[in-house]
Design a protein around this nucleic acid. Sequence first.
DNA 1: CGAGGCGTTGAGGAGGATCAACCTTCGTGG
DNA 2: CCACGAAGGTTGATCCTCCTCAACGCCTCG
Lengths: 245, 245
Amino acid sequence: MQDTAASSQLNALKVACSACNLRELCLPVGLSDDEMSSLDNMVSTRRSVKRGESLFHSGDAFAALYAVRTGFFKTVVSATDGREQVTGFQMAGELIGLDGISNDRHSCDAVALEDSQVCLIPYGQLESLSREFTLLQHQFHKIMSREIVRDHGVMLLLGSMRAEERLAAFLLNLTQRLQARGFSASALVLRMTREEIGSYLGLKLETVSRTFSKFQDEGYLEVKQRDIRIIDQDALQRVVNGAGC
Amino acid sequence: MQDTAASSQLNALKVACSACNLRELCLPVGLSDDEMSSLDNMVSTRRSVKRGESLFHSGDAFAALYAVRTGFFKTVVSATDGREQVTGFQMAGELIGLDGISNDRHSCDAVALEDSQVCLIPYGQLESLSREFTLLQHQFHKIMSREIVRDHGVMLLLGSMRAEERLAAFLLNLTQRLQARGFSASALVLRMTREEIGSYLGLKLETVSRTFSKFQDEGYLEVKQRDIRIIDQDALQRVVNGAGC
DNA sequence: CGAGGCGTTGAGGAGGATCAACCTTCGTGG
DNA sequence: CCACGAAGGTTGATCCTCCTCAACGCCTCG
């Protein structure tokens, strides 16, 4: 039934947040040595998830949050009639599973788009620890709030932008996050299909493909399947700002 | 500059959560007597906001959350180019302002759609108190998580539903929340304009109006401006489930 | 080397946007 | 208390963006 349990391994290796190069992007931002070592105790397990596998499914019991260590995920909500919506793409340092707190069950699927590793953050322990450490508590609240603000931004995109604006905003957001992780601001490899991008942006895959081609024709991008090179970032920014009006 | 400060009054009246009829819908859900009385101390101020006025604006410093006591609000995010998106409508017992935690500034406007009263929840005190009281901490986390789940539902709506499905889902959601507050499941008065509904649903006001008319023609609703009577709730539910396909 | 998944491109159609006219309701001030 | 104006709501005609359906090419992986 649960393919995740079968095929993803649990690594008992000791993993220290304090030694992780993502600590400035992840939950531990700004913690003291003391707090950091408590966090190290809590975040003791990693889990590997192969491409295509799920970290959890909608309906699964909620027990832990997951911090992406390596790899790339999407989260997907499904309606009763089978309709699906990609609600986000998560990369290194980002937290997955916050949806589960609301009623102790996950309300979306989290699927690895490439072979990935996550750090397990047992939720009960996180609550205990944040009663003890003000900074950790505050940082955790910030992360939840940031997710809410991000979601509102996506609503703005879905509710009021046209196809070109949506794709441009998406690409700029991706490159910005990649840049924060030390990658190039101009060359990126998409980990998701056109259909997944379309689902996230409220467009059909053909529209995504056509819009990529259009951006290439305009000289904004170079598109080779999933390899994207951004040639004119300012032009994309102008597209987002509704320069077409 | 700040019209809110000028025209909304601060009521120093002692207001007890423990005596509030919204306590089962609001932050205090499930708290013990002890915890409840600490909450009473924290939530000591109410604020009145007249119709059309803002509780806070995007960019304002964040200091407190607000629990709607009476009335009705909308929250609106704005893009740099002036585009606006209504991200939610809040009624009695619902919390406003969670967006502000992320970076100590609000990222949306909260506007009263009728004369309203809110309870002020000073955020610093809420953090202190939730370090002390496990249940309060957990309840607060649940509320944030619920907002994230709600937002994902809106994304599904905006990304994959057609106009009729969106409006039907909207109406069912409204009546459900009103019913939880003891109101009729079939008769409701809309507190917002067609344009605000449209903004929330990613539609133009004309489309909202036409869809209302269509639902009326089909015999699902009786529409008299802002007075709505739901005649066939099941039919609306079928519309949401994509019965048109 | 073949099959299947993914991506591109074209043609045609539909849903919702836009523009416009008109009606209704409500608040304000004479 | 009524008249007026502004804001909100309805409806129609037309247009445009994006969806749908379809064919085909490319890349990957067994």
